[in-house]
Nucleic acid binder design. Structure first.
Length: 274
DNA sequence: CTCCAGGTGATGG
DNA sequence: CCATCACATGGA
């Protein structure tokens, strides 16, 4: 099915922006996305035109919100440029990035796992966890893959089971998330109605979830674009490029989006000539 | 061998 | 409140 995306949309940059860990490239111009039990193959036909492997209904119900297509990133780049010189560089460099609206449970577990791991290691851990607990398998024309496991599917996992998957000291953290969500102590749907600060606070009731992980879940799952996660790369940017002063207060409701441009810029700006 | 990776919790001041 | 430190694992 033919899809037009007139706004910013660069799959390669989105894949390299450290927000989704199950995105893969197939051949030169096709990208695979996974959310819940949906898989999408998106082939870039020409500028702004894509062939999507799903129905119109699935596109509108699942993928349009997933790609945050109701938000105009071109307009945001335009309105936020001119406030900070380094952010301006990052915004220009990262044109094409979007903030994906991903599954809250998957983001919670993924970013618990992410601490003190590099991005390839996070990706591997997410795949291993899915292979171990995610059912039923999804069969497409191209491949067979496992969905990210639902909380109930991990309910009887032991700490040792999770350590065997390479989660290390994060294993009890993941188990605490499983226990809280399965018991209803943490309702990932209900908290979507909370204000940003209360949402962050609720997420941090899980062991192993601190300020940074809570901000990642808020931004990448709940679409809270005022939330700007500060990790080692952003700390480095503030220290070395922003004269020790966080630029994010300048951007209010778009701080999280600017954060994502800066994160991508810090990690990729030296790879220009390749 | 050492160092580091999208951090957090515990501890001590 | 802020500064240290331990924490598992794998790759460079």
């Amino acid at each position: 099915m033919l899809i037009e995306i007139p706004d910013d949309f660069d799959p390669k940059k989105i894949a390299q922006s450290g927000q989704c860990f199950r995105m893969r490239q197939f051949g030169k111009d096709t990208w695979r996305f996974v959310t819940k039990d949906h898989v999408l193959y998106l082939k870039n036909i020409e500028k702004n035109q894509f062939d999507a492997s799903c129905s119109r209904a699935e596109w509108e119900e699942t993928w349009q919100p997933y790609f945050d297509l109701d938000r105009c990133y071109r307009k945001i780049r335009s309105s936020e440029t001119g406030k900070h010189p380094f952010a301006d560089e990052a915004i220009s460099f990262g044109r094409g990035i979007r903030i994906l609206r991903q599954d809250p449970w998957e983001m919670l577990v993924t970013f618990i796992i992410s601490q003190r791991k590099n991005i390839p290691a996070i990706s591997k851990a997410v795949e291993d966890l899915s292979a171990a607990y995610g059912n039923p398998v999804i069969v497409t024309e191209r491949e067979t893959l496992h969905p990210f496991p639902a909380p109930a599917q991990m309910e009887h996992a032991s700490e040792e089971d999770l350590r065997d998957l390479g989660l290390g000291y994060r294993a009890p953290y993941v188990l605490d998330a499983v226990r809280r969500v399965c018991s209803g102590a943490l309702d990932l749907f209900s908290i979507s109605n909370l204000e940003d600060d209360k949402l962050l606070e609720s997420l941090q009731t899980v062991r192993g979830v601190g300020v940074k992980v809570a901000n990642c879940v808020s931004l990448f799952a709940y679409g809270r674009c005022a939330c700007a996660p500060v990790d080692v790369w952003i700390e480095r940017a503030i220290r070395e490029e922003c004269d020790e002063k966080s630029p994010f207060p300048l951007y209010g409701e778009n701080a999280g989006i600017i954060q994502q441009y800066i994160f991508f810029y810090m990690r990729n700006r030296d790879e220009e000539r390749a």
